[in-house]
Design a protein around this nucleic acid. Structure first.
Lengths: 265, 265
DNA sequence: GTCCACTGTCCCGCTCAGTGGGACACATGC
DNA sequence: GCATGTGTCCCACTGAGCGGGACAGTGGAC
């Protein structure tokens, strides 16, 4: 919640906690899977037992069953997430379809601007990055495919929210507006005003709201029903990117993807 | 198994059947997840009940629990795989790390050759495609990120197998050498001879062995321990690609990725 | 209109899959 | 030596998961 988090900045944000229920086998399994992250790609049985809060013998049994199913892989120094998960994840339609449709236009945008191009979808109150084309030069941005950030704190998130139904926006506000930097729109008033301006302009800007030194311009992609399903953004680092100049390009690309999505059958 | 399969060709291959055991809750859940594929991105409770062979009431309960956990999403016309899976899948280290390391070199290769570039890892007896940069022009190849094909029938698969331990190769042979086209190396003798030649040349070729009209050259990427962990390939369609000319480029790129992997910490 | 076949949802009593405390062997480090 | 960490396995208990079956709603055929 605090802008000055301990280590590497908001590369990824924890998913919303699961609604409280007496945990089922399935839930325990998901808890085990969720225990892994970028910083902890390999965990031992004891690690998992500690992180998840389940008895070691239970984790042991669970983990071996999951390995049998391909959800986990056992290595000499612990468990890691398995290829089966990658395979299943790639089939998730919300990310797959929009990525498929957007890829060519992302490449054009990438080539035309030389900047890093992002594609993200909304999942609950967060955005999840679905595809990234990185700038050849310049520092590596902290974003990651599969990474999750609170929607209100990102360009892509604001672009989607601005054109979503009011209940979606309300959901985000109700879940809180955590500040990732001191520029994050953490006040509902400012946040709503920003969305209104985005609706007017058709573009959302992010001036160091998600991460220090990171600037971006984002535009929404609309699906079949006319509702926003994703957003494209062009991102760069401080003063090395001319957002007003790039905004029309992002909008145009996003509109092209929209057209493509609505054309397909 | 038959080369002239019914519809769209070998875009994806079914994963190996799970070892037979009395099915656990977890296994049933995975069976439900695996019921989804490219042609069936949305399934209803009844669909799932039929496809998986579980009672409808059981599927109903299971599916709603999985939706609560984010593994599935409920839409007006059925269930689909959820974003949670995509998120978890992107964390699977085997695909993530190698893709991260390979991306820049894939882009170079893509730019230098103009052809489609593939990155795949070995999973059991199959290869799973981890990243694809598609040629701007020309027909769309049937490959798909997250797609699975029997290793012996692909360039990338043969490139990996040729430099893997004998037990890995034996595993593939023991699992059978199904023919995807009439050019697939379906005989152990021919297969072993091909691997030997690949070891000598450092490049694996695929002349319509995985799909008609598809030609490719592939080279292995080695991990920390000196064992192959992935393979890069350059792919094109009949006669529109000059493999001997591209082979050195693929090898060079693969070696660069190897270097990068072994350098990182 | 009346079928019929199909959905998704929910109930509820039975039972066996899942549980987890605890014991054990082994590897480190002091 | 002892202490503290691993991973693995056993086994008696019990409630989570099971699934047959009932039900309401939908929609096409006739």
């Amino acid at each position: 919640m605090c802008p000055t988090e301990r280590d590497s900045g908001p590369e990824s944000w924890p998913a919303a906690p699961l609604p409280p229920t007496r945990e089922s086998v399935l839930e325990r399994a998901v808890m085990v899977l969720r225990a892994f992250d970028v910083k902890h790609p390999v965990l031992t049985v004891s690690d998992l037992s500690r992180r998840v809060g389940l008895p070691k013998s239970t984790v042991h049994r669970l983990v071996h069953e999951m390995a049998r199913l391909g959800l986990l892989e056992i290595t000499p120094d612990g468990m890691r997430l398995g290829m089966q998960l990658f395979e299943l994840g790639e089939l998730a339609p919300r990310s797959r379809d929009v990525r498929e449709a957007a890829r060519p236009y992302m490449e054009d945008l990438h080539e035309a601007t030389g900047a890093t191009v992002h594609l993200a979808v909304l999942d609950g109150v967060d955005v999840v990055y679905v595809d990234i084309l990185r700038a050849k030069h310049g520092p590596r941005l902290p974003s990651r495919v599969g990474g999750r950030l609170p929607a209100h704190a990102t360009g892509v998130g604001k672009a989607i929210l601005a054109f979503s139904g009011p209940e979606v926006v309300t959901g985000r506000v109700a879940a809180g507006l955590p500040a990732l930097t001191r520029h994050t729109l953490a006040m509902p008033g400012a946040f709503h005003r920003a969305l209104q301006s985005i609706r007017r302009e058709g573009v959302a800007y992010d001036h160091e709201e998600s991460s220090y030194g990171v600037y971006c311009a984002a535009a929404p992609v609309f699906g079949r029903g006319g509702m926003p399903v994703a957003a494209l953004s062009v991102t760069g680092t401080t003063h090395r990117i001319d957002l007003p100049r790039l905004a029309p390009a992002v909008r145009t690309a996003a509109m092209a993807v929209t057209r493509r999505l609505q054309a397909s059958v």
